[in-house]
């Protein structure tokens, strides 16, 4: 990794994200440090995926700012929840993975010898050597997730966002993919992952943001995931209120 090293990779200033005018993430303030490994934990409907969409820019904040510290020409690598991939499309594993090189080769640039060897390295890193020519429609769920991780590897991005990457994935695949997450952390990339498995979070992720539409606790994983905090998070997910009044909390 090169370029400027800022203290925080992602900053939130009074961020409110939502759909229509209804907030899914309410008044979030804070920083995600460069090179940190953060888990986002919370009940269903707590706004975890919404938060990632906000960071990647797919959803514009209703209020506030999200600051990204990225070198020029780099973009955030984002693995959405149950990626909206058309699995019936006649495309090979190799070609899908190769798309991770987009930020370097763009729509027209060639994929040379060096790039091809990087693609092969990425495939071998996720344990998919020999699957190059397989159509993506023939992959199992775990193999598909490995393919998408290979693509993330090639994106070579300083900020990596993962939305429930291990849901419906077996233990062996999860362990292999977690090794990649550790490797990214060791390479000083900023990794943010939405997770449901508290044990995995405690084992692998030093930082945790516990969220239930509003941040409940944020900091070192062991302190954040206390029984009291988890209980509070469960109680804080409110029902959808079609007649909610405008929020008048001061934006200061």
């Amino acid at each position: 990794m090169s370029g400027t090293v800022a203290a925080s990779a992602i900053g939130f200033d009074e961020v409110t994200l939502g759909y229509g005018r209804h907030p899914a993430v309410h008044h979030l303030n804070g920083e995600i440090a460069t090179g940190s490994l953060t888990a986002i934990v919370g009940p269903n409907g707590a706004g975890k995926s919404t938060l990632l969409k906000g960071i990647v820019g797919a959803l514009r904040p209703l209020d506030g700012h999200i600051r990204l510290t990225l070198p020029a020409r780099a973009s955030v690598a984002y693995l959405p929840q149950a990626a909206e991939i058309d699995r019936t499309f006649p495309l090979s594993v190799y070609d899908l993975v190769a798309m991770g090189l987009w930020s370097r080769s763009g729509a027209l640039g060639g994929i040379g010898k060096g790039a091809r060897s990087r693609i092969e390295e990425a495939l071998s890193a996720v344990g998919l050597t020999g699957f190059e020519r397989r159509p993506i429609g023939t992959l199992s769920g775990g193999q598909m997730q490995r393919t998408l991780f290979a693509r993330l590897l090639l994106q070579d991005s300083p900020i990596i966002l993962l939305d429930e990457p291990f849901t419906a994935i077996d233990a062996k695949t999860t362990a292999d993919l977690l090794d990649l997450v550790r490797r990214w952390h060791a390479e000083a990339r900023t990794v943010v992952a939405v997770l449901h498995d508290i044990d995995t979070v405690k084992r692998v992720f030093p930082q945790t943001l516990l969220i239930a539409r509003e941040p409940v606790a944020w900091g070192a994983t062991a302190e954040v995931l206390s029984a009291a905090n988890l209980l509070r998070a469960r109680q804080m997910v409110e029902a959808y209120d079609p007649h909610a009044a405008a929020c008048d909390r001061s934006a200061a």
């Binding site: 797919a58 991939i85 070609d95 899908l96 930020s103």
Partner: peptide
């Protein structure tokens, strides 16, 4: 020939295309 990559990517994985490009 010029549009090939974004066109394929827009069919296969539109979310990914949006995250790397405005094409």
């Amino acid at each position: 020939a010029i549009l090939y990559r974004p066109l394929v990517l827009e069919c296969v994985d539109p979310v990914f295309l949006r995250s790397v490009s405005r094409a």
